[in-house]
Write a protein that binds this DNA or RNA. Structure first.
Length: 265
DNA sequence: AGGTTGACCTGGACGC
DNA sequence: TGCGTCCAGGTCAACC
């Protein structure tokens, strides 16, 4: 579900409420969703304060007053919300953190593709640069090193962090680039266009509060609006907004891929 | 070694 | 109504 704009929206709705807040206890943490396996999350969090809530890639990062960190990854169906302590607990609630002031931070994730990862003082591993602060020559270099389809390369989190299936398709459409093109076949100008398109699409999506296809909500339970402005994602058979061409759907690297047969080739 | 495929899960939409 | 099939904002490990 959640890509960079959705995760960023969750962070922005959580941070004001949680910065400086005290963690009272951890009444529930599903053991098989905590990494490293067997780590005692409750013991690590109890009595600490949350210094900040930030985003890195698709990860919601909590920094404690001890300078230790953990992050929540939402997988496909994760929802991280703030609820009143006495509010009803939804099915598939896998993490509950008691916060001072009668609030609970809760993770609901039916498919359980998400995770709660204790970092301690270690750094994030295996995540590429952030697309919102990427220079055009950096993107050109990243793509120039692979002959995989450019769409597939954009999804590789070790190359670029935070872009997922929706925004890869949307950015390639905005840049007018065929998603099947080998990464190393893009010209410098095309890489530059793609770099700009990624930033524009991601920023607009953040401004709209993300895309809610089915599950995604922010920390207050509110859905995003960006799905109404998708140009290609989930628009198979519909007309292209740019050229009236037909949006087609193919499978690339095992992922559903949408593009305009006319203005992206 | 780079690149592709299936597995991990639940639930909603669809067809019969 | 009730099955069975397919699909989904992500990421790994296991394979060619």
């Amino acid at each position: 579900m959640p890509e960079l704009p959705e995760v960023e929206t969750v962070v922005r709705t959580l941070a004001p409420a949680l910065s400086g807040a005290a963690i009272l206890s951890v009444p529930h943490a599903r053991a098989d969703m905590v990494e490293p396996l067997g780590h005692d999350l409750a013991a690590s969090l109890k009595g600490r304060r949350i210094a900040s809530v930030t985003r890195r890639a698709k990860r919601i990062v909590f920094t404690l007053d001890s300078a230790e960190r953990f992050f929540v990854h939402l997988g496909m169906t994760g929802q991280l919300t703030l609820e009143p302590t006495d509010g009803p607990r939804k099915k598939h609630t896998h993490l509950v953190v008691d916060i001072a002031g009668g609030r609970q931070l809760r993770l609901v994730d039916p498919r359980r593709f998400g995770a709660i990862v204790w970092l301690g003082k270690a750094d994030h591993a295996n995540v590429g640069p952030e697309p919102l602060s990427l220079l055009p020559e950096q993107l050109a270099k990243i793509l120039g090193r692979t002959k995989r389809a450019v769409k597939t390369a954009l999804l590789d989190q070790t190359l670029l962090a935070g872009v997922g299936n929706i925004y890869a398709d949307e950015a390639l459409h905005a840049a007018g680039i065929d998603p099947r093109r080998p990464g190393n076949s893009l010209s410098t100008a095309e890489a530059g266009r793609l770099n700009r398109a990624l930033k524009t699409v991601l920023r607009n999506a953040i401004r709209a509060g993300g895309s809610s296809i089915r599950d995604y909500v922010d920390a207050n339970g509110k859905r995003g609006d960006f799905q109404a402005r998708h140009r290609v994602y989930d628009r198979e058979g519909k007309p292209c907004h740019k050229c009236r061409g037909k949006i087609i759907r193919i499978v690339l690297g095992g992922r559903s891929t949408h593009y305009c047969a006319d203005c992206q080739s």
